[in-house]
Design a protein around this nucleic acid. Structure first.
Length: 587
RNA sequence: GCUCCCUUAGCUCAGCCGGAUAGAGCAACGGAUUUCUAAUCCGUAGGUCGCAGGUUCAAGUCCUGCAGGGAGCGCCA
């Protein structure tokens, strides 16, 4: 089952072959894309302009030549030349009708499985022990989950891995805090809050107070050498933290296949460093063990070099500290080994904020030097800002707690529901508020380009207009209300469709494109491509809904409109589902 | 000091491998409701795509330089 783009691209390719001119580059592959503006038609190609120079022909003349050779009468009207040499295609009604009918019969809604399924491990969320999840975890968690859903749907084998920060110096700090400054009453009341207080207090002293610093490092060493009491405390902290995180994952509907924390890799670190020393990948420097540049890369592309006073000087990746301890990079290298050798992942995606880009470039460079055979990619993202364009904070100036943020979203959604949806029962209102609130948080995240920073705005994300969850959900609810009204009188929807009104045509074309859009998400791991598509679909549907009555019509018109509503409903539900959003039936 | 990221309408943001007159939403203004849910739709107005060069038939998109903002930079994670 080919998308309309694929069919047209194939025909265009054949037409260009027929030109049989050796000046056409071997690797040239003509492409047809959706029209940038519907005034020009449905699809377009710039092949004539791209090849004009090679064939030394004026673009418009070449376009005419291509059109002469194109065999597309069965798919579209005679293609037209426009502007500097575009070829525009206007698809025939029967092409749209048969494609819509294919999509209606297809459980995948016209989206093909990938032709090259991979085993993909996605590393995301990554909360830390003794710290409740906060606003800073939201982007990784939501983007990561969306990528898991999309990869899986496209036929990849996916391992969702929560790489928990459960090892290293911070744990030593909390243990030290626990032993010396625990407020038992506060702990009984809210354990995670007390752990966070201890961590923050000790972290501050750790910087300034030599003795605290030393004591914490001793606690860390004790833990890592298997001291029983330390391990018991560590387990307790871990349980407390993870049960808090789990509540958030449950509410968000997010599941992991594995949650191997940093501690899991601890026993592998020593042997790993020895191995790297043996292989001469790493060497000792100032008492530490480091991986240096091997000068295979151009200096400016080499993350293990930095320019200072006009000279390139080494910035090694430290894998064993002077005191014998291991650090972040060591664990990450060991983690790659495990994922590649034992899980047999072919691709690893790290959904981590962009401040760590240097770390990942170094990590990937070490992997390259070791000839690790896997595709490693840092799926980075920017910061969440407040109205003042500074990192988003609560009114009290602290980092907002994630569970509080989720609750506030639901509370705010509830208020709107009270205002607008008085026809619903109490139970329904609660359900709708939950789905809209959580959906709004997720949609706000996924509709943004992940690379840039964005301003967090309650009003915007819960707005009823614009590119927001409530707007999308409302479109879905409207499709549902039509079928609810029909109840048991839903007629058999036949394949006989007549697409005549502009609004019908617009939405039908949009529906045909679902299969073209979904795979594109993975070209650069950008969920907002899907969000933008769904927004355009919802807009087209709202417009259709206003202009084209369904239930009051008869015959083929009714049949057509029911088919479009049904397909829109299915695509909206499915697409939102890929974003991890599950709309209610009513609102 | 060096490296990376960002800069598009008053505000918040889209804009994929370069392609036609740069698009949405909010805010502003003007319309549509005995409804398949107006949580919607239709319309008007709003731009030197940070600045300067370059490559190209074609640059918001690619390259170079500059400015502004953010982040990172040997023993934290």
């Amino acid at each position: 089952m080919l998308t309309i783009t694929q069919q047209l691209t194939e025909r265009l390719g054949k037409a260009i072959q027929k030109i049989q001119n050796s000046n056409i580059p071997e690797d040239y592959s003509a492409t047809v894309t959706a029209a940038t503006d519907t005034r020009f038609g449905d699809y377009q190609t710039n092949a004539a302009m791209a090849l004009a120079k090679n064939l030394s022909m004026p673009p418009r003349e070449l376009a005419a030549e291509i059109i002469k050779l194109l065999e597309v009468e069965d798919l579209c009207e005679t293609p037209e030349i426009a502007g500097p040499g575009f070829i525009n295609f206007r698809v025939k009604e029967n092409t749209i009708v048969s494609r819509i009918n294919e999509i209606r019969k297809c459980s995948r809604l016209g989206v093909e499985n990938t032709h090259s399924p991979k085993k993909i491990l996605i590393d995301f969320s990554s909360p830390n022990i003794a710290k409740p999840m906060h606003i800073g975890h939201i982007r990784s968690t939501i983007i990561g989950d969306c990528l898991v859903r999309v990869c899986r749907f496209l036929g990849h084998e996916v391992i969702a891995d929560n790489h928990i920060g459960d090892w290293g110096t911070p744990i030593g700090q909390v243990i030290y805090g626990w032993k010396n400054h625990l407020d038992q009453e506060a702990f009984n009341e809210d354990p995670i809050k007390e752990l966070l207080r201890l961590y923050q207090m000790i972290k501050e002293k750790f910087e300034s107070d030599q003795e605290v610093n030393k004591a914490c490092l001793e606690e860390t060493v004790k833990l890592q050498s298997g001291d029983k009491e330390s391990l018991e405390l560590w387990n307790q902290f871990k349980d407390i933290t993870m049960s808090g995180s789990q509540k958030i994952y449950d509410r968000l509907g997010i599941m992991f296949d594995t949650s191997l924390g940093e501690s899991f890799y601890d026993s592998r670190l020593g042997p790993l460093v020895e191995d790297l020393l043996c292989n001469k990948i790493a060497k000792e420097s100032d008492g530490a063990v480091c991986v240096f540049s091997n000068n295979e890369l151009e200096p400016k592309n080499d993350p293990l070099l930095v320019k200072r006073d006009g000279n390139w000087i080494p910035v090694p990746c430290i894998i064993r500290k002077k005191d014998g301890g291991f650090n972040y990079a060591t664990t990450d290298i060991a983690t790659i080994d495990y994922r590649v050798n034992e899980i047999e992942a072919e691709t690893i995606l790290y959904v981590v904020d962009d401040r760590q880009s240097l770390h990942f470039r170094q990590l990937f460079e070490v992997a390259r030097q070791r000839k690790i055979n896997a595709d490693l990619k840092h799926v980075s993202f920017g910061k969440i800002l407040g109205d003042d364009r500074k990192p988003f904070k609560t009114r009290e100036g602290s980092v907002p707690d994630l569970s509080t943020v989720l609750q506030e979203a639901v509370d705010r959604a509830r208020k709107v529901v009270e205002e607008k949806s008085n026809n619903l029962s109490e139970e329904e209102k609660e359900n709708v508020a939950e789905k809209i609130g959580i959906g709004a948080i997720k949609y706000a995240e996924l509709s943004q380009s992940r690379v840039s920073d964005y301003v967090f705005s309650w009003d915007k994300m819960l707005s009823l207009q614009g590119n927001t969850a409530p707007y999308m959900i409302n479109a879905f609810v409207r499709t549902r209300s039509i079928f609810r009204k029909l109840g048991n009188n839903l007629p058999e929807i036949s394949e006989e469709l007549s697409i005549s009104a502009d609004a019908e045509r617009a939405i039908a074309i949009k529906l045909c494109q679902y299969g073209e859009i979904v795979p594109e998400i993975l070209t650069d791991h950008r969920p907002n491509i899907l969000a933008t598509y769904l927004y355009e679909l919802a807009q087209a549907f709202h417009s259709f809904y206003e202009q084209c009555p369904v239930l009051s019509t008869e015959g083929i018109t009714k049949n057509t409109r029911l088919a479009l509503c049904q397909t829109t409903s299915a695509v909206l539900q499915h697409g939102l589902g890929l974003l991890g959003i599950f709309p209610p039936e009513k609102m």
